[in-house]
C-alpha cells in the first residue's frame, strides 16, 4: 500500500524533475561544451597574440622594404633642368671615364659603385641618392651653405644594409656634398657609426636574407632613344654594337633604365640559413622597383 503510494508520488513528481540518466547526459554534454569553449578561448587568445606578434614582425620587415622601394623610385633626381645640366657637365664627359655614372650614382651596390649587368649585380647593402632640400645649420659643413637657416638643394644618400641579421639604415646629406669632413656612412662603416641605425630587433625577427639585385637594364642612345646593342634602321644602326662602356665618349650620350629586385627573408628563430627550409612564421618578401629617373651619361666634349 505504501509502495503504491510512493510510486504514485514518484510517478506524480517525476514528471517535473530529472532522472539520473538525464543529469548524467546533461553534465556530459555541458562538460564537453565547457571544455570545448575553454579550449577554443585559450586557442583564440593564443592565436590573437600570435597574429599580433606576426604583425609586429611583418611590420618590421615591410616598413624598411617599403621605404627602400620609395627611395629606389626617387633615385637619380637631380633637381631642375638647369641643375641637371650642371650636374651632367661636371660629372660626365669632362675627363671622367666612359661609362662613369658620376659622383652621385643614383644607386650604388656596396663599395662596388653603380651596378651594371656585367658587373656587381647583387648586394646586401644598397645606397640610393637623390636631391633634396637641406636647411643649413651652423657648422654643418655642407657645401653651398651660406649660413644657418639658408636652404640649399643637395644630394642626399639613403642606405640599407644587413649586418648580424639586423637590418640597418642611414639617411643624410651625401658625403660628397660636404666641404669638410663627412660622416662615415658607407656600406663598410662599422656598426657603431652613428648614421647607421638598426630598423629591426633581433629579439623579434631574425633577418636571414636581404638582397638587392639588378635584374634588367636598358641602355639607349640619349639623343634618339635607340637601344644600344640592337641594330636597327638609321640612326639606330650606328650604335648597334655599342655597350655601356662607350657611354660618355665623345660620340655617345646614354639613358639607362634599370629594374631591381629586393628580397627579404626573416623568421622568429635565431638559426641561420633556414629560409630554404620554410620555418614556421617565415616572412618572405620579393619586390620589384624601378627608378622613375633614368640614369643619364652625357657625351664628352669633343
Amino acid at each position: 500500500m505504501q509502495l503504491k503510494g510512493v510510486r504514485s508520488l514518484i510517478a506524480g513528481k517525476a514528471v517535473w524533475g530529472f532522472s539520473l540518466t538525464e543529469l548524467m547526459v546533461a553534465i556530459a554534454i555541458g562538460s564537453f561544451i565547457a571544455l570545448a569553449g575553454t579550449t577554443f578561448y585559450v586557442t583564440t587568445v593564443g592565436s590573437s597574440k600570435d597574429v599580433y606578434d606576426a604583425a609586429a614582425r611583418t611590420e618590421q620587415i615591410y616598413s624598411p622594404a617599403a621605404s627602400l622601394l620609395d627611395d629606389i623610385r626617387r633615385a637619380g633626381y637631380r633637381g631642375t633642368p638647369a641643375a641637371l645640366s650642371s650636374y651632367l657637365l661636371t660629372t660626365q664627359g669632362f675627363g671622367a671615364s666612359a661609362g662613369d655614372e658620376g659622383d652621385f650614382p643614383a644607386i650604388e651596390f656596396g663599395t662596388s659603385g653603380a651596378p651594371t649587368m656585367s658587373g656587381a649585380t647583387t648586394t646586401d647593402c644598397v645606397l640610393v641618392s637623390y636631391v633634396q632640400q637641406h636647411t643649413c645649420a651652423a657648422g654643418d659643413g655642407v657645401a653651398g651653405c651660406a649660413g644657418a637657416g639658408t636652404v640649399v638643394q643637395v644630394h642626399h644618400r639613403f642606405g640599407y644594409r644587413l649586418r648580424n641579421h639586423v637590418l640597418e639604415a642611414t639617411a643624410g646629406v651625401h658625403p660628397g656634398e660636404y666641404s669638410g669632413g663627412a660622416p662615415v656612412s658607407g656600406c663598410t662603416a662599422p656598426p657603431a657609426t652613428a648614421p647607421w641605425v638598426p630598423v629591426t630587433r633581433l629579439g623579434d625577427v631574425f633577418v636571414d636574407t636581404f638582397t638587392v639585385e639588378l635584374i634588367n637594364e636598358n641602355i639607349a642612345d640619349g639623343d634618339n632613344d635607340c637601344v644600344l646593342g640592337v641594330a636597327g634602321a638609321a640612326p639606330c644602326d650606328t650604335y648597334g654594337n655599342t655597350s655601356l662602356q662607350a657611354c660618355g665618349s665623345t660620340a655617345l650620350s646614354c639613358r639607362i633604365d634599370r629594374l631591381y629586385k629586393v628580397t627579404l627573408c626573416a623568421y622568429p628563430k635565431s638559426i641561420d640559413n633556414q629560409c630554404a627550409n620554410d620555418p614556421d612564421d617565415k616572412i618572405y618578401v620579393e619586390l620589384y622597383a624601378k627608378p622613375r629617373n633614368a640614369v643619364l651619361i652625357q657625351a664628352a666634349a669633343s
Binding site: 637619380g76 633626381y77 637631380r78 631642375t80 633642368p81 641637371l84 650636374y87 629617373n293 640614369v295 643619364l296
Partner: peptide, 10 residues
C-alpha cells in the same frame, strides 16, 4: 619627360 627631374613633391 626629362630624365632626372621626376620627384615626389614634399
Amino acid at each position: 619627360g626629362t630624365a632626372g627631374t621626376w620627384k615626389v613633391q614634399e
